[in-house]
């Protein structure tokens, strides 16, 4: 990216959920937590799209939700455009909310069924004080055009049930960009859509970055779409970032054993390609009693005694590619 200025800085972010184990716990001093996010740090530069990948339970969705402050943090800082917003008051929060928007996975559930498309998109404008009716109408038409719902007049007074899944997701994106935010979190925006129209949504997100300079966090379990859309990728595993770096580097030369396993499991639509998947145990460890040291150690084919001391510190293995494994990809030990 030409512009290396940071827009979002996440520092030592933690999110623990306390769980209630029934009456016995009332008499116990000990509190039990699920560590959904456990001390992660990363930066998203202006105009960059960062992909956040991982299996269910890795903490990727929680991270996205914290960045739009749908959830509070347990500890750590999120610095957006120079200031820490996690502990701001509601008034201050309203200002920043304008700058950060989110697009959700399910376009069937995130639009109000009783609102027309116009009302859906005009609502944020009204909340942020736009009163002139003509101005609102013009702006709504404009964003519908940007979201490629054209001619916009054809869509503006429809209700969500009169739209296809792809069209609904475009409406959700139009609503997301109507306030001209600086940052967009998109959580699995194409996973509910049919393959034949997914590409359009991915291309639209790409265009928003290229033309409006919108910075994005793209959360997905689908590594193929991340490779297509994103500049950098972060791989999460049980609340930790295990690898982060340039998307092409990470996918063509993964450093962390978990990244290697994940990539080797993705099916490829090429009958000539012989995929060798790395065999591991497919059950995740208990999220409450996490393993000591490296969290991937119990399943890792290369694990050694040393791994029990691993604290997931990210080490730069290639230029711009950081791995949380104590070994580099070249000298992974032969394992247990």
């Amino acid at each position: 990216m030409m512009n290396k200025e940071a827009l979002v800085q996440v520092k030592n972010l933690k999110k623990y959920y306390q769980i209630n184990r029934g009456i016995r716990q009332l008499f116990s001093e000990e509190k039990i937590y699920v560590k959904a996010i456990d001390d992660i740090s990363f930066t998203i530069n202006k105009g960059e799209i960062l992909g956040l990948a991982g299996e269910s339970g890795s903490g990727k969705t929680t991270t996205g939700e914290i960045l739009v402050r749908l959830q509070d943090v347990t500890d750590g800082e999120v610095i957006f455009d120079g200031h820490d917003f996690m502990y701001e008051t509601r008034e201050e929060e309203k200002e920043f909310r304008k700058e950060i928007q989110m697009v959700f996975q399910d376009p069937y559930e995130t639009l109000n069924p009783r609102f027309t498309i116009f009302e859906t998109i005009a609502e944020p404008l009204k909340i942020y004080g736009m009163k002139d009716k003509d101005e609102i109408y013009r702006r709504v038409l404009e964003v519908l055009q940007i979201a490629e719902l054209r001619p916009a007049e054809q869509y503006i007074f429809r209700y969500p049930h009169e739209l296809s899944g792809g069209q609904r997701q475009r409406v959700a994106i139009a609503r997301g960009i109507v306030l001209e935010p600086k940052f967009l979190v998109a959580d699995e925006p194409v996973s509910m859509l049919d393959v034949s129209i997914r590409a359009d949504i991915l291309n639209l997100l790409k265009d928003l970055r290229d033309k409006m300079g919108l910075t994005m966090l793209y959360v997905s379990h689908d590594l193929s779409t991340i490779r297509y859309l994103c500049d950098r990728i972060a791989i999460m595993y049980l609340g930790k970032i295990v690898e982060i770096g340039d998307v092409d580097k990470v996918i063509s030369n993964p450093q962390h054993p978990y990244t290697q396993v994940l990539l080797s499991s993705v099916p490829v639509a090429d009958p000539d390609y012989r995929r060798e998947s790395i065999e591991i145990d497919d059950e995740l460890p208990d999220q409450i009693n996490l393993p000591e040291g490296c969290r991937f150690e119990p399943r890792c084919p290369y694990a050694t005694e040393e791994c029990k001391k691993c604290d997931h510190t990210l080490i730069e293995r290639e230029e711009g590619q950081w791995s949380g494994c104590i070994y580099s990809a070249e000298d992974l030990p032969s394992g247990k």
Binding site: A199, L223, S224, R227, I251, Y273
Partner: peptide, 8 residues
């Protein structure tokens, strides 16, 4: 044409 691949 519409299908993304992990092999770039």
């Amino acid at each position: 044409n519409a299908f993304p691949s992990i092999l770039d």
